[in-house]
Design a protein around this nucleic acid. Structure first.
Lengths: 137, 137
DNA sequence: CTTTTTGCAAACCCTTTGCAAGACA
DNA sequence: TGTCTTGCAAAGGGTTTGCAAAAAG
């Protein structure tokens, strides 16, 4: 742990670990504020950023949406519902190093990693769609 | 082509095709404005959005950065330089349907597609790093 | 006592939107 | 004509930053 051990940091990290599903920084902020109204939004953003840089937590950068934070630090893939914006884990085997190597060869870059994001419709929205069809028919 | 064929649309699409490397909407706007100062920023954003919805051009959603537009519409992967922000194509074979299917099985989502983005350091920044090291040593 | 962190507000970037005027078909 | 598109400016979402006060080590 490279930073200082402040009260706010404890609270923010605790709240993140308590929240279930990939909260955004703003969602963490709301949860934190519920119990500790004096903690500022900037502190939450800064602290989450620091924690993820230190490797304590994961940061999931979402195409076209707010970043999500993940209490688990190990890398895995995610899927985003194109309908409601929900984000879930996709626990499939990680792509092998050969993919990064192929990308390096194809691009001339030194590859440090990759992000694989799926897009789709979550179970809840699938249900909602079915119900709408039933009503329309 | 579903929309109307306006002068602005011609100019914007032409400018995008002329620009080399995955410009952002704002970069297209600047290029357009150089020759046609009366064209507004909102028009550029709206037109690029429409063109990509119609499949005329590609839209590359970048983690943590402005969207890029691509004069080629077919899908391929990209790499982003963590140093200078540059985006390049990564012409490797697309992941097979089996990956989407595995993601569907693992998540319960109906998967419509995926985005694979590599992170790395581009050749120019690699050079710059080497030069800095040489100076420091 | 020095350095980091906080809280606040303002600034920032990227993008979308409301609306009246204008251009297309 | 009826409808889509434009241009402008303003608003919007998400995030970062400057600064003085407070807290950590």
């Amino acid at each position: 742990m490279s930073g200082r051990n402040t009260v706010q940091r404890e609270i923010i990290e605790g709240e993140l670990r308590r929240l279930a599903n990939h909260p955004t920084a703003d969602e963490v902020y709301e949860a934190v504020r519920a119990g500790h109204p004096s903690i500022g939004k900037a502190t939450v953003y800064r602290t989450l950023g620091r924690l993820s840089e230190e490797g304590e937590i994961g940061r999931v950068r979402i195409n076209n949406g707010a970043d999500r934070f993940d209490h688990r630090a190990f890398s895995h893939y995610h899927v985003r519902c194109t309908c409601c914006g929900r984000v879930d884990d996709v626990m499939i085997p990680l792509l092998g190093d050969d993919v990064n190597e192929a990308a390096a060869r194809a691009s001339g870059y030194v590859i440090s990693g990759h992000t694989l994001q799926f897009d789709g419709v979550c179970p809840a929205c699938q249900m909602a769609e079915k119900n709408e069809e039933a009503l329309t028919a």
